[in-house]
Structures are given as C-alpha cells and as structure tokens.
C-alpha cells in the first residue's frame, strides 16, 4: 500500500491531470468536427504537426514574438481546416462514412510527406528551456502547466462561443438535426466551414502548446493522433463533455501505468482499457445503455 501513497504516485497523478488537460483540448476540436459535420478527420494530428512547424519557423527562424506567433499559428491551422473541408470533405459529404475516413487518411499521408520533403526529418524544438516547478518534493514542469492553462482557457472560450453566440447556437442545432436546420434557414455549408475553422483553430492552439514540450518532426502526429481518436470515441464521438472526461481517464491511465514500468506499457494499458470499454459501453462513457 506504500506505493499507492508515495510521492511518485502523487507526481504521476498530477502529471496525469496536466496531460489530461492537453488531451482534452486536442480531443475537443476533433469532437466538434465529428459532432457537427459527422466526419472523422483522421489527419487531425497532422494538422497539429503543421501548426507546430508554423510555430517553430515563426519563433526561431523569423523571430516573431511568441504571442503574435500563437495567433498566426492558430489562424494558419484554422485556414488549413477550412481548406480540408472545402477540398476533401465537401465532395464526399454524401459518400459512405468510411470513404471520408480514408480520404482524410490520404491527407494524413500527404501532410506527413509534405513535411518530410519541405522540412526534412530532423527533430526541431523552440529551444526555450522553461524552469521546473518544485512543490514539496514533486517536480512539475512549467510547459505542462502552461499547456493545462491554455487548454482550459481554450475550452472555456469554445464553450462560451457555442452557448452565447448565434453562430454557436446554430452549430449546436445542426449537430442535433441536419435536415431541419436547413429548413429553418441556417446555411449548413457556412456552418460547416465555420466549424472546420474552429476545429482547425483548436488544433492550432494545441500545436502552440505541444511545441513547448515536444520536438517537431514529420511523424510527431503518430505519437498523439491515435490516442486523440480513442479519447473521442471513448467519450462518445461528438459528445464534448464525454470527450473531456475520457481525456482525463486516459491521461491518468497512461501516467500511472507508465509509473510501474515504461511509457509504452502505459499506452498498452490505455489501448487495452479502450477496447474493453468499447465492449462495455459502445456508445461512449456517458451514453445510456439502450
């Protein structure tokens, strides 16, 4: 029982919560896209990768101040999201869902190899070394705290947008019933584009936060992309609150699981947990069983 209350355990739990905030932010954008447009962007993590490169080049190569770079980066990925919707998703809106999934899989290949061709396969980072916060005997890294804070701010902003503005309400309405809303005079094409931009923007924010902690390389998306999907599915695709809770559950499993052994085992545990949960609650954590 000593193990359960050790300082390492407390550190793992706190790191899990911080990681959870970050994962929740990543899952939020993807979930929004799914809930509203009913497509899965399998290349979502690659959009984040592009955003991370954007941050890297703006900050280290062109010396743009960080706040400006963050705004530019969010805008860049938002535009990418709109382009993705306009070029790839719109022609496939009425195709089989699996075709949409595969087409965005093609975009995944494209973005990955585009980054390889354009930027090479070196690992790059911002070169900013932030201090480590010491609380008691625990060490908590500043980038993780910043990530957690930014994730919370981002999520609150999205929540306010969805509940307080006309466009936000239209987005939520269309997620509930796509046929009726068109009859009610909501332009679904416009709403879809706005949602894609919003989902892209969230990916951009995620990129700004991730680049503080991780090196950028063309395949960085593969290291957190799959986990983001699983979180969305575990929370129930399109269910924003479910995704939020699932992110923390997943993050704690990874943090505590990897405490006992390697980080990989944390992931294995999390993936295994996901598969088992799919059998117990196929509709997501918050779904009522029919």
């Amino acid at each position: 029982m000593d193990f359960l209350f050790s300082i390492e355990m407390a550190e793992a739990v706190i790191n899990g919560i911080l990681l959870g905030g970050l994962l929740a932010l990543l899952a939020l954008g993807l979930n929004l896209i799914f809930g509203v447009i009913d497509v899965t962007w399998i290349c979502y993590a690659e959009l984040i990768m592009v955003g991370m490169y954007g941050m890297y080049f703006l900050v280290t190569v062109y010396g743009v101040p960080i706040p400006l770079a963050v705004i530019a980066c969010i805008a860049l990925v938002a535009v990418l999201g709109m382009a993705l919707h306009y070029i790839v998703i719109e022609p496939l809106l009425n195709a089989a869902p699996i075709n949409q999934l595969l087409a965005t899989g093609g975009v995944l290949f494209f973005l990955q190899s585009f980054a390889t061709v354009a930027f090479g396969i070196e690992f790059r980072n911002l070169g900013i070394r932030l201090p480590v916060l010491e609380v008691g005997d625990m060490f908590i890294s500043y980038p993780r705290l910043i990530a957690f804070g930014a994730a919370l701010v981002g999520m609150v902003l999205v929540y306010l947008f969805l509940t307080r503005t006309y466009t936000g309400i239209a987005i939520r309405a269309i997620a509930q019933d796509r046929q009726i809303m068109t009859l009610m005079g909501v332009d679904s094409r416009r709403i879809y584009l706005i949602t894609s931009a919003l989902g892209g923007g969230l990916a951009g924010l995620g990129a700004c936060v991730l680049v503080l902690q991780y090196d950028v390389h063309p395949f960085v998306g593969l290291s957190f992309g799959p986990i983001t999907f699983l979180i969305c599915v575990l929370g129930g695709l399109g269910n924003l609150i479910g995704g939020f809770i699932a992110a923390f559950v997943f993050a704690e499993i990874i943090a505590i699981g990897s405490l006992a052994s390697d980080l990989e085992w944390g992931y294995v545990l999390a993936f295994g947990f996901f598969i088992v949960m799919m059998f117990i609650r196929p509709g997501g954590l918050l779904a009522r069983r029919s």
Binding site: T40, D262, E264, F271, M278, F279, P282
Partner: peptide, 30 residues
C-alpha cells in the same frame, strides 16, 4: 467477437481495430 456481438460497425469498428494495431506496435516497442 465482442465488436460484432455488440454491433460495433463502420467508424467505430475502424477505430477499435486502430487501437489494436496501436497495442501491437507499443508491445513490440516496449
């Protein structure tokens, strides 16, 4: 078996199997 038993199809089936290949990859690496 549980996938088919519990009617996990389409997107969801693709994502469950995605988790499976993730597990195999991580186990080989670990």
């Amino acid at each position: 078996y549980p996938c088919f038993r519990f009617r996990i199809t389409g997107h969801y089936f693709a994502l469950v199997t995605l988790a499976l290949s993730g597990i195999v990859l991580q186990v080989i690496t670990a």
